[in-house]
Simulated scan of single mutants.
Amino acid sequence: AAQAVPGPLFTFAAYLGTVVSPEPHGLAGAALGLIGIFLPGILVLLGTLPFWDSFRKRAGAQAMMRGVNAAVVGVLGAALYDPVWTTTVHSPRDFGIALVGFVLLVAWRAPPLVVVAFSAAAGMAMTLV
């Protein structure tokens, strides 16, 4: 769940560390809040890293990782559809902009910044028409 919202999670932890009533608060509290958010994950990573190569060679582990990858693709697809697609694509013009952006990214391998700039310009142009 934390990986679904990493930006807001660590920002909120730093904020809480800053405004918490008992000492320490301010910069020290923010640092303590960030350490509290990141340290468990880093410790789990460091603890399992030595065993990763032997684990990933097992057939059962490979099947599990394929299943996890499929689940992640499904969750990302669901997140793309609702709320992104349902709140932005309302007309054939909107669909056209999304389709051109997709082709720019996938087929022509355009930099994401170019696709964002194109999509923003096309969206603003659509409001003028």
Rank of each mutant, 00 (worst) to 15 (best):
Ala1Ile: 14
Pro6Tyr: 07
Gly7Trp: 13
Pro8Tyr: 02
Thr11Ser: 09
Phe12Lys: 11
Tyr15Ser: 07
Val20Tyr: 02
Val20Cys: 11
Glu23Ala: 15
Glu23Lys: 14
Pro24Asp: 06
Pro24Leu: 07
Gly29Pro: 01
Ala30His: 03
Ala31Arg: 01
Leu32Asp: 00
Leu32Trp: 01
Leu32Ser: 04
Gly33Tyr: 00
Gly33Gln: 02
Gly33Cys: 02
Ile37Ala: 09
Gly41Phe: 10
Ile42Tyr: 08
Ile42Phe: 06
Leu43Thr: 03
Leu46Val: 12
Leu46Asn: 07
Thr48Tyr: 15
Trp52Gly: 00
Trp52Pro: 00
Ser54Met: 05
Phe55Ser: 03
Phe55Arg: 07
Arg56Met: 09
Arg58Gly: 11
Ala59Val: 14
Ala61Leu: 05
Ala63Asp: 08
Arg66Trp: 12
Arg66Thr: 13
Gly67Glu: 03
Val68Glu: 06
Asn69Lys: 12
Ala71Glu: 05
Val72Lys: 06
Val73Trp: 13
Val75Gly: 06
Ala78Lys: 07
Ala79Glu: 15
Ala79Asn: 13
Ala79Val: 12
Thr87Ser: 14
Thr88Val: 15
Ser91Phe: 04
Asp94Val: 03
Ala98Val: 04
Leu99Ile: 05
Gly101Ala: 04
Gly101Lys: 01
Phe102Lys: 02
Leu104Cys: 06
Val106Asn: 12
Ala110Thr: 09
Ala110Met: 13
Ala110Lys: 04
Pro111His: 15
Val115Cys: 03
Val116Asn: 06
Ala117Asn: 07
Ala122Met: 03
Gly123Leu: 10
Met126Leu: 12
